[in-house]
Design a protein around this nucleic acid. Sequence first.
DNA 1: ATGAAAGCGCTAACAG
DNA 2: CTGTTAGCGCTTTCAT
Lengths: 340, 340
Amino acid sequence: MVTMSDVASAAGVSVMTVSNVLNERGRVSAQTRLRVLEKVKETGYEIDLTARRLRAGRTDTVALVVPHFDHAYFGELAARLAPAFGAKGKHLVVEQSGASREGELAALSAARLRMYDGVLLSAVGLSFEDLDRISVRTPIVLLGEQRVPERFDHITMANAEGARLATARLLESGARRIAIVGGEEPSRAPSMASQRTRGWERAHVELGADADRGLVVQLRPHDAPTARDAIRKMLERDERVDAVFAVTDQVGIGVVAGLTDMGLRVPDDLQVIGFDDLALARHVAGGLSSVDPGSDWIAAQAVDILEARMAGAAFAPRHLVSPVRLVLRGTTKAAPAARR
Amino acid sequence: MVTMSDVASAAGVSVMTVSNVLNERGRVSAQTRLRVLEKVKETGYEIDLTARRLRAGRTDTVALVVPHFDHAYFGELAARLAPAFGAKGKHLVVEQSGASREGELAALSAARLRMYDGVLLSAVGLSFEDLDRISVRTPIVLLGEQRVPERFDHITMANAEGARLATARLLESGARRIAIVGGEEPSRAPSMASQRTRGWERAHVELGADADRGLVVQLRPHDAPTARDAIRKMLERDERVDAVFAVTDQVGIGVVAGLTDMGLRVPDDLQVIGFDDLALARHVAGGLSSVDPGSDWIAAQAVDILEARMAGAAFAPRHLVSPVRLVLRGTTKAAPAARR
DNA sequence: ATGAAAGCGCTAACAG
DNA sequence: CTGTTAGCGCTTTCAT
């Protein structure tokens, strides 16, 4: 392997000069610079990032830690983040925590963290107390719905608001019994599911409708096959359900499949709205109506904050909530004339 | 920050003893071991992986380099790989190359490679010559369809065979004009698209049908929106098309959406088969028929090979082709009685 | 403008 | 069983 000192001797200079040339830290004559660069090319030298990291404490790499590699939402988020970090000279890598407390703690261990200049963590398994116990100097931006200690930067979606928007739309379009598939008792610790259930409930209250707890269909895991199965059981129990708010698009896709299995038509027999506005949503089920959680905004903010922290900026921890927006497609009916 | 020597002095031993305890390299009395571990816990010490890497040349981390973070196929592959590597004490991270030659070269630069004990690279932009120029000692397993130098371990899918299977099935079920959406002139350098087009062609030849080149619909990029648009244009040009082989499930989903846009029914008016057998395939479009590319097998082989290489095993480079299998669902018609 | 010395935190190799 | 020495490849600091 060719090291810096190989290049140095080839160029007849000291390693320091090579280092200075490569890091563009001025103080090098144009002539020397050229000679060094030439030798770099000649020898095929490439810097050892590990060594630099050890000495300079910098890796120019940031990590995004997601619950599962195969969650489309995070794939899309990562795809948005990568070029944004790239533009700032940072390299993005994605890790998987397995959605477990242990996995997330491991990702946040000092050992792992030290490999990165900054970390974006989508925490789902960690409690407030777990997070509070963490003390590292690697900048971390937390993503997700749970309650986090004040001192962390944190970006979340307007979960309840998105769910409220979707549910209100269904009620306004005439739906009376709206199942929430993937919902959860709102009393529990804040989670994606519980917050969206809260929004579902709130819409009912605001519009003077009855939010029947019997319409909350819990899901474990939150995936399409489980949802497909669950909606069938729900309808066998209560055939008056006339709309579904699915807590994610994945779930929504499963719901539509389940309804189709039963010979039901969407949106004529039942309307469906999902959440996440995945790229695929517009191409399935005649266009899955969904809540756009503002992923572009989230990615932009995350990069901004992390960049600033990595540059050493000191500012009060940011706690941001992304703007959400309802995107209506084929799985919902046209609004009734009386709507406005 | 607490280092190994902090722990050492706290425990009244040398750093070497601490190192030995942590690496379980025997030769430490149970008593000392306990004292050291106690101090480790007390101080909250965590090893600096960078330093270990620099000295020991090992990171216990492997990278999977994919074209794009938001390709569902790779998300699913990564999800399969992560636990398999985890079981062997390796940690998986995913990087994105941007599907470009430059991006892939950067991923394969010695600098990057040295951060990992091994690399799985899904190469799509690199030429044979590019690959041939690469010389590093980090074990690499190449994934994908292009031609690679003999000396690399390489796993590919039976692309042509999968396409042949799918196309033959369509022909047997009565289809006469089968468009291949996302196809490509088979004369070009081997690529996913060209190999699958070859299989499409072969099926026609074998069954005495005419593979009309006018039915090859090129796509750039290979995504659902593009496919949705392309199939519409194709049908406006040639309304006799009665089936579609989509080179990927993503494309297949776009095709189904496009057909639905035109008021056509699947599979009654046109049948559709995709490729990849994504987890979502069974839940969309009444069940998207697809070619299962043997991802489980691919993941298992990839882990095996890379593990062995990382352990220093010397064996002839492996060149493997995964077994494929047709999975028929709702977007294809039942086979005609006369089939066998 | 350039270089020498020191050391980041760890572990291989050996000595005791 | 434990410790000493040396050094991985780089950058910080300070001297020239």
